[in-house]
Simulated scan of single mutants.
Amino acid sequence: MKLHGFFRSGTSHRLRIALNLKGLPYETVPVDLRREQHLGDAYKALNPQGLVPTLEAGGRVLTQSPAILEWLEERHPEPPLLPRDADARARVRALAAIVGCDIHPVNNRRILEALRHDFGANEAAVQRWCGRWIADGFDAIEALLAADARRGDFCFGDAPTLADVYLVPQVESARRFQVDVARWSRIAAVDAACLRLDAFRRAAPALQPDAT
């Protein structure tokens, strides 16, 4: 497998975690968003949307991290990232979607670049923008974690699920935007539990070959 991504990209980060949890070897192919390599003809021939990550696997080219993660779960079901029970799967997917649908999309690089260049936002305004959507999403996740009597060390149960795969990169991003994650004690505890696992530690942005 070849993972085309950017070390600081939350979507690339979540895919690295999933691949590590499933014990799947992959080659990292850096795509430098700062130099706009994702907009070049070579990369767009691979991924017409010009976004990261892209996964090459067995002659296939897979795009969009939610689709890739579902594909990994179906093709490589062990260890599972989704519970067996339908109600439990719905809960895990809902937690993941708060990050994947409601926090990350409005805080990703192309949105922030538009705020800077099209709307004249300075860095303080950009940080306030990011902090607002992170806080809204984290408030909801914290409440859902507090309401779940079955929760173990992770978002759902005693082993990482898709919810943790989404949450940990968003926590990393929150810290980068100077959001105090400690105010959400359950999220902070889940993040700490995940980072005790090698699969999460090895996926950290700072440890990637293109990190600078």
Rank of each mutant, 00 (worst) to 15 (best):
G5F: 15
S9E: 10
G10N: 09
G10S: 15
G10M: 12
T11W: 05
T11C: 11
T11Q: 05
R16A: 05
I17D: 07
I17E: 13
A18P: 06
A18V: 10
L24V: 04
L24E: 03
P25T: 13
P25K: 09
P30C: 05
L33I: 02
L33H: 02
E36V: 07
Q37I: 12
Q37N: 11
Q37L: 14
L39S: 09
G40H: 15
A42N: 09
A42I: 08
Y43G: 06
A45S: 13
L46M: 10
L46Y: 12
N47E: 09
Q49G: 05
L51P: 00
V52A: 03
L55V: 11
E56L: 11
E56I: 03
A57I: 12
A57L: 15
G58P: 10
G59R: 07
L62P: 12
Q64Y: 02
S65G: 09
P66L: 09
L69I: 07
R75W: 12
P77Q: 10
P77K: 05
P79N: 01
P80G: 08
L82Q: 12
D85T: 01
A86V: 03
D87N: 07
D87M: 07
D87F: 08
R89T: 06
R89W: 05
A90F: 11
A90Q: 12
R91S: 04
R93S: 05
A94Q: 13
L95T: 00
A96E: 09
A96Q: 12
A96V: 03
A97T: 07
A97E: 14
I103V: 04
H104Q: 15
P105Q: 05
P105W: 02
P105E: 03
V106H: 06
V106R: 04
N108A: 03
R109S: 13
I111P: 05
I111L: 09
E113G: 02
E113H: 02
A114I: 15
L115K: 03
R116Q: 14
H117V: 14
N122V: 09
A125E: 05
A125Q: 14
A125K: 09
Q127I: 09
W129M: 13
W129H: 14
C130S: 11
G131T: 13
W133Y: 14
A135F: 02
D136W: 06
G137F: 04
G137P: 04
G137L: 04
D139G: 00
D139Y: 00
I141Y: 00
I141G: 02
I141P: 02
I141A: 03
E142A: 08
L145F: 08
L145I: 01
A146I: 10
A146Y: 06
A147E: 12
G152W: 01
G152T: 04
C155E: 05
F156T: 01
G157S: 01
D158P: 08
A159H: 04
P160Y: 00
T161I: 06
D164A: 01
V165M: 07
Y166D: 01
V168H: 01
Q170C: 08
V171M: 06
A174Q: 00
R175T: 15
F177A: 14
F177P: 12
F177C: 12
D180T: 13
W184I: 06
S185P: 07
I187T: 10
A188V: 01
A189W: 06
D191N: 09
A192W: 10
A192F: 14
A192H: 12
A193S: 15
L195I: 03
L195F: 12
D198M: 01
F200H: 00
R201W: 10
A203Q: 07
A206K: 09
Q208P: 02
P209H: 10
D210I: 09
T212A: 06
